[in-house]
């Protein structure tokens, strides 16, 4: 996404800063950054989780969609922990413990996030009320 959006941003919303020449390290990616787990079930679990974790260094991408080295290292953590028998939820919890809710794209109901779930519920009620008023009135 980054290249598309950066380019689109440059064009659409022009006053873009020249992309700083971010120096890259010369180490190869971590072993499980781009290597699937042998067990397809575990790999599917890992893949599903990686799509829901936010790459910490790249602003708005999941670690499953990023070329950033840190995203690769995070994928390695996810795959190797799941291969070692951890559940996806405990891997997520491990990261949330360190980075807060920011790291997970799946908000959980909590003191800071309950409106995310309350508002759609209220919307549903409003929608049903409107439908009742518009459609059920003249029966």
């Amino acid at each position: 996404m980054s290249r598309f959006l950066a380019a689109a941003a440059a064009l659409l919303f022009a006053a873009m800063a020249p992309v700083p020449a971010t120096a890259q390290d010369r180490l190869p990616p971590a072993p499980y950054a781009d290597r699937q787990l042998a067990d397809p079930g575990q790999e599917a679990e890992a893949r599903a989780l990686m799509e829901q974790l936010r790459c910490i260094t790249c602003q708005s991408q999941s670690i499953a969609d990023s070329n950033a080295p840190m995203a690769g290292d995070m994928r390695h953590q996810v795959r190797s922990r799941i291969a070692a028998g951890e559940s996806p939820e405990s891997v997520r919890a491990w990261l949330v413990e360190r980075y807060g809710d920011y790291v997970s794209y799946e908000p959980r109901i909590g003191t800071a996030t309950w409106p995310l779930f309350a508002v759609p519920a209220v919307l549903l009620v409003i929608v049903l009320l409107i439908l009742r008023r518009r459609l059920g009135a003249r029966r």
């Binding site: 799509e51 829901q52 936010r54 999941s62 807060g100 809710d101 920011y102 790291v103 997970s104 794209y105 799946e106 908000p107 800071a112 996030t113 409106p115 995310l116 508002v119 759609p120």
Partner: peptide, 23 residues
């Protein structure tokens, strides 16, 4: 609209959250 703006709202209170595809 809610999911897009919500992280902005919590940021105003110093809490950072992410809202993505699973939501």
């Amino acid at each position: 609209l809610l999911g897009t703006l919500y992280p902005l709202l919590t940021e105003a209170f110093g809490v950072r959250v992410s809202v993505g595809p699973p939501y």
